[in-house]
Every structure is written in C-alpha cells, then in structure tokens.
Design a protein around this nucleic acid. Structure first.
Length: 474
RNA sequence: GUCCCCAUCGUCUAGAGGCCUAGGACGCCAGCCUUUCACGUUGGAAACACGGGUUCGAACCCCGUUGGGGACGCCA
C-alpha cells in the first residue's frame, strides 16, 4: 500500500527550520515510495493561532518547494468529529468524566514530584461513581489508559522504545468546554486522513505511546512512527532565534536559495555515503528514514553558506538578475533599467563566483548599478596616491585609443606599466589604482571586464573625475 | 524529581566485529593560480567521551560512569 505522510504544524509561530526539515523528510519519504504527502494545520488553539502564521507557513513551504498533495486540512474545522469520537469512547467505557479542578491537579503534580513519582493525574475519577460529581463543575473527558505493564513501540528512527504504563496518566481528550485536545485530535485526524507513517520531531516520542492507546481503543490500525531528532543551535542548546530558529522567510530575505536550504536540511541528520551535493531527484531516490541518525544535529551557517554559494553558481545568469530585481522591488524600489539589466547579465558570470548569498551578490552588483559620481571606500582612497594618479593620467590616453574590449584594455594597461612608465611597473601597480578609480573599491570582478561592461563613456567619466581630485570617501 | 533518547575531527557525517595507521564535506592553516577579491587546485592540523567486560580481534556488541538532549499542561 502506498504510504501517506503529513506535515502538521501548529500556526502559533512561523515555520521555522526544524519544521521545514520535518516537512522535507515527510515529503521525501512519501515520494520515495510513490505515496502521498499531506498538510494539516493544527489550529485548535484559537488564542494562539493566527491567520498570519498560517499564511507564513503556507508561503514558506511553497517557497522551499515542498508542495503537498490534496487540500490543506484545518484541524479546527474538525472539532465536531473529534467530539464524536470522544463520546464514542465514553460510551464504550474507554473514557470517563473527571471533575478534578485545575487547583487539585496542580497540587497532585507537586505532591507526586516531591515523592519521586512520575507527575500526572492519579486517576481519582477513573472508577468513581458519577453520582458523586460535585455540582457546578464541568467535567473533562479522560482516556482510560492501562495502569499496569509496559508497552514497546518500534520507531523507524529510534528503534524499539519501551515505557512503563505507570509513567503515562489518563490524558484529557475533551476539555471541560467541550473542545478536543491536541493529543486526541491528532489521532482522529491522522486516522481519517489515512496517514500510514507519522514522521515528526523527537519531542513527540512519548506522545506516540498515548496516541497508540487511542488507536487501539478505537480499533483503528496504528500508523508507523518515526521520531526524528530535533535540530540544535550552534552552541548545542535548544534552537533559539539567535542560531537559526528563524522563520523560513528570514532565510529567503538573507539570500538563501531554496534548493540550497533543501540540500542542507537533508544532510542534517541524514547521509548517503560521501554525497554532499544532492539533487532533488537523487534525494527522492536515496531517502530512507531508517538512515536518519538518532542524535540531534547542530545548525551550522558556514556550511549552509557554502552550499548556497554552490547553488548560486549553478543558477543561470538570467535567473539571478531576476532574483536581484525581485529583491529590489520587494523593498519598494524600481526595477532595473535596460542598461542596468544588460550590464548585470554581462557581468553575472563573474559576479556570482564571488557571492555566497543573494545579499552578497546584490552588494557586489553595485559596481554596475552605481552612477557617477561614485563614492570611494577608504581602502580605495589609499590606493589613489599622487603617484598612482600620475600613472592613471598617463594611462588615460592609451585607454581612450582602445577598442574598449577587455583584452585590448588589458594590453594597453600592460603596455603602459611595462613599457611607458619609468621606472617600469608590474601590472598590478597600475591595475589596482585603476580598479579603485573605476569601481571605488579595492575589490571587484576582473577590472578590464568591469570596464568593458561599463563602457567607454562611463569609465572615462569616472577616471576624469578621479584625476580632478573628486575623490569622496564613504 | 520520574521516564525516554543520544554520544566518531570545531560542525555535518561515512563507518552496521577484521577493508580503519578511522573516509568525505564545511570551517581553519599553508602552497599554487592571479591585476584585487573570489573560484579552482595541492597539501596540512583536527575525532572514535571515560571505565569495565565479550571476542583471536571492537569506533562498531554488553554493563557502568560522565556529558548532552527530550517528555512529563483543560499548549500544540
């Protein structure tokens, strides 16, 4: 039977990196086996769920290229069905009404903890006569879980995990206001949606034991479970905003490519021999949940950057120009002029070689976008010594006579440095000040390429204003 | 506190008893390339947490210690 997996985020925050990986693994697992990957929004906490968060999750998944099958299921819309199942459990005596107050529960927990017992509900209403119910208290419905013995789950990632039933208490499935709890809704929805494999974060491992009891009480087939380790921050502690638990949109804004993020996330906690660069097709072909490691992985921006740089170089120039334009217009700025776009297309091949992220690329592309008078970095100013300016003045005439094509410009500059200058200079002695004069910076793509793309007029204007001493530093 | 899980270079990992004087990648260092910065390329430093077993033989199996992480809500 073809598997059905799902990603089930709760829209109480934004889609973060850990959720993105969970979605990726679910999707790869399903695709590898020719199954279905579904999406369910767990918006049962109406206080904390927001429409903005739902949009952010949907957009984040789309941006990352993690499309899902079928319609999105909203858990909140299914409350009636959840209630129905809870009542069914109540009727068959697999659940019962509990009248314990929140204060009572808190005291219970504290006492248990103090006595070294597992904290949790003690089952005081489990077998009590409902006639004893206090007046004016709305009861919750609790699931009657086995008290004795132990149970074992064969987790696809964690292996065999055994837990004593006394560690688990009778969980609430329906609140006193009649709304279903998460623990209950998940089971009903997963069953109704035909989920065969529940792949989710490690933090749900203990939930699996309770949820399985519910499946069994209903006589439903129990899905396979796979609990993948959480992602940690660079310091090994739990993920926080400081080290990567950012909304997925933040990665986009910083200029990460979805394909790079996918590749990075895939390799976090999973490997296929020595493979590092893995295409989407290979990922689908190779992915096996059993190969996911059990130990939590730390998030490493340096490695993400290097992967991103790789995929950036792999992108075609045209798509990168388009990506840069999107960033501009997203900020409310105008798009590129014909001339700017043309320059960027021409220069992109060497520009992208020098960038790790789109924001780097954007910064570097300024050489082709800035209009004179340009501003000079401090280091560029330092290169433009009186001596250097003297050389540039001499070089100007040779350049002007050129065909304005990179090899000719280089030949002219080389000729000036080696044959005309007295004493003779190394090419760099002239090329560096030339770079500073034209680009306003100490670093840039190859200077003669830049000059060719910028064109004769633009370059000579820049050179002249420089020779006139109009050198303004930032 | 109770329970569960984990443990190979700084980081991600390969490794499923002899192929391991432990491989790859990122990062780091050095060389080469070079008009700068990158790219590329060559080389280098860098790990089986510790202690006991089992075995002819252990990174791999068992036990313990230590160290991490997670779960214990009328949150999801």
């Amino acid at each position: 039977m073809a598997p059905v997996t799902r990603f089930a985020p709760s829209p109480t925050g934004f889609l973060h990196i850990g959720g993105a990986r969970t979605a990726l693994f679910n999707r790869l697992f399903a695709r590898h086996l020719g199954g279905t990957f579904r999406l369910r929004i767990e918006d049962t906490d109406k206080q904390r769920s927001t429409p903005e968060a739902i949009d952010a999750i949907l957009e984040g998944l789309e941006w990352l290229g993690l499309s899902w099958d079928d319609d999105v299921i909203y858990q909140s819309a299914r409350a009636e069905r959840h209630r129905e199942v809870a009542l069914q459990l109540l009727e068959s005596a697999k659940a019962y009404r509990c009248y314990a107050t929140p204060e009572e529960l808190a005291a219970m927990r504290e006492k248990a903890r103090a006595e070294g017992r597992p904290p949790g509900y003690d089952g005081r209403w489990r077998d009590r006569d409902p006639a004893e119910a206090p007046a004016g208290v709305d009861p919750v419905i609790r699931f009657k879980a086995p008290r004795e013995g132990e149970q074992t789950i064969e987790d696809l990632v964690q292996g065999f995990v055994t837990v004593a039933n006394r560690q688990l208490d009778d969980m609430i499935i329906l609140r006193s206001d009649g709304s279903p709890t998460y623990m209950h809704s998940v089971v009903v929805d997963d069953h109704d949606m035909g989920i065969t494999h529940v792949i989710r974060g490690d933090d749900h491992l203990t939930n699996a034991f309770r949820q399985r009891q519910l499946y069994e009480a209903m006589g439903w087939p129990v899905p396979a479970f796979a609990h993948i380790p959480l992602i940690h921050g660079a310091d090994g502690a739990k993920m926080s905003k400081r080290h990567g638990a950012l909304a997925i949109g933040a990665y986009r804004d910083e200029g990460y490519l979805p394909e790079a993020l996918r590749n990075y996330l895939l390799r976090l906690g999973w490997g296929h021999g020595d493979e590092e660069i893995i295409s989407d097709a290979q990922a689908v072909e190779w992915f096996d949940i059993a190969n996911v490691g059990k130990n939590p992985a730390r998030f490493d921006f340096a490695k993400l950057d290097s992967l991103n740089a790789h995929y950036l170089r792999q992108r075609d120039d045209e798509s990168l120009v388009a990506a840069l334009e999107v960033r501009r217009t997203a900020r409310g700025e105008s798009g590129f002029s014909e001339e700017q776009a043309g320059r960027l297309r021409a220069g992109m091949e060497s520009l992208k070689q020098r960038a790790k992220r789109l924001d780097d690329l954007e910064a570097a592309s300024q050489v082709y976008l800035a209009e004179p008078p340009i501003t000079y970095t401090e280091q560029a100013v330092k290169l433009l010594t009186p001596d250097a300016l003297g050389h540039l003045a001499g070089l100007r005439a040779l350049l002007e006579a050129c065909d304005w094509e990179r090899s000719e410009l280089e030949a002219a500059t080389r000729q000036f440095a080696e044959e005309i200058a007295d004493p003779p200079l190394k090419l760099g002695k002239v090329a560096q000040p030339l770079r500073a004069a034209i680009t306003g910076s100490k670093v840039s793509p190859p200077i003669f390429e830049v000059m060719e793309i910028l064109g004769r007029e633009s370059c000579l204007t820049r050179l002249d204003s420089c020779l006139e001493g109009k050198i303004f530093s930032t």
